[in-house]
Design a protein around this nucleic acid. Structure first.
Lengths: 220, 220
DNA sequence: GTTTATTTTTAGATAACTCTAATTTTATTT
DNA sequence: AAATAAAATTAGAGTTATCTAAAAATAAAC
């Protein structure tokens, strides 16, 4: 089964939307996610249906098939491996990698990905803390909790962010709340839901509820 | 100036043909080089002419412009840097890299190439011994001679091959005549132009004129 | 120096992907 | 449940890159 670059991008978006949103994925959602028009999406859905990577009945909605999931996870695996490469080896900042990885993920060569995986020492998580599927599409995801839902005196490690926009990532980097940072909740303000945290046992930091709710922590 | 992937491939082929063949590059030559039909080439030449990367007058022929050369060399630079990466870091065999590098060379990110160059320690030659242009398109190429044109008792180092087909590269690897190997011409047979060489001061080897003419040696 | 052969270009089609505008279907309101 | 709003789809057209077949231009042969 061979997918074009465009098909891979649509399928990846569909997979991500299916995972988070839970309920059925709408044509408009996909159009928004992938920055295109609904008309283009309709067309592509028909094609993806024919290729049996989604089940599609027009006006009714769609569901990703097992085949589709496997293929989407392969693309996601490639994307995240390349992100690790860019950050670990080429010293990209973690908010600079997305655009380039978006291109690299479409390179076709299973040998390349096997070798890259080995070269990077079989990483299990990308620089944003998201899990890297293995070659069969299996993901071992750690249980995580949003920072604003933690209790006072609880500690843990920042392992991922929900919003991975460049602006947000830059902000986090600036205040020192990078992926991997060990944190502890010092105080929570009932009034506005903001939190005070201790980062790496040395720096205290205030965070709005908005920001904290976008940070995922592996509790310890 | 932005070129599409297809345009980059055409331009690269044109550059290579201009360099070796010397005289003007024909539509059919290009078609053969990139495995397409002459009709497609005609069409593309018109477009490349409009973009001013070649000078083109139909039926008369073409000439690559300075702009075209610069852009072609940028693509070649990317291709060769990726080849170094694949061989040095991911342990690809030197006859497995071409197809993958052919894809990687079209990734668009100047930052990526700068970082890759640094990561590989600013290599000056790719695994086939071909020089890697710098970011301004300058190439420092070593004077080289075809193996079949060397005289008896002359020695040197294999630095490149003309024919870099997988079959040829595999053959060379098999007989131990890899890039970097030190060789010495022991004998030349007038009759058929074949040569006898000593490889790495231990192994003697017979080579047909055909094979020898495809091997480039840096004399010492 | 015509005639034939080769090379190159144009004409017309196709495939993938995108768009705007119009239409159809489903959802919401009253 | 009829009227209106929203969402999704189709129709038609444009772009890029490719092809086959036909026509035009150049080169080679006699």
């Amino acid at each position: 089964m061979e997918l074009t670059t465009a098909e891979e991008n649509y399928l990846k978006a569909i997979y991500h939307l299916s995972e988070e949103g839970k309920k059925s994925v709408s044509t408009n959602d996909i159009a928004a996610a992938i920055q295109t028009k609904a008309a283009s999406v309709s067309d592509m859905l028909r094609k993806l249906g024919e290729k049996e990577v989604i089940q599609y009945r027009k006006y009714y909605g769609l569901q990703i098939t097992e085949l589709g999931k496997r293929l989407a996870l392969q693309t996601i695996r490639k994307h995240r491996l390349w992100e690790v490469f860019l950050v670990d080896k080429l010293h990209f900042a973690w908010d600079e990698v997305h655009e380039v990885a978006e291109q690299l993920e479409h390179i076709q060569s299973t040998l390349l990905i096997e070798r890259l995986d080995a070269y990077l020492n079989y990483p299990k998580f990308d620089p944003h803390g998201d899990p890297i599927p293995d070659e069969y599409g299996d993901v071992r995801s750690r249980p995580r909790i949003a920072l604003n839902e933690m209790n006072i005196d609880q500690g843990g490690q920042i392992v991922a962010v929900k919003d991975s926009s460049a602006a947000f990532l830059r902000y986090l980097d600036k205040v020192g709340a990078y992926i991997g940072a060990r944190i502890k909740v010092l105080d929570k303000v009932e009034f506005d839901g903001s939190v005070e945290i201790l980062v790496d046992q040395k720096k205290t930091l205030f965070m709005s509820k908005d920001v904290a709710s976008n940070i995922l922590v592996l509790q310890s």
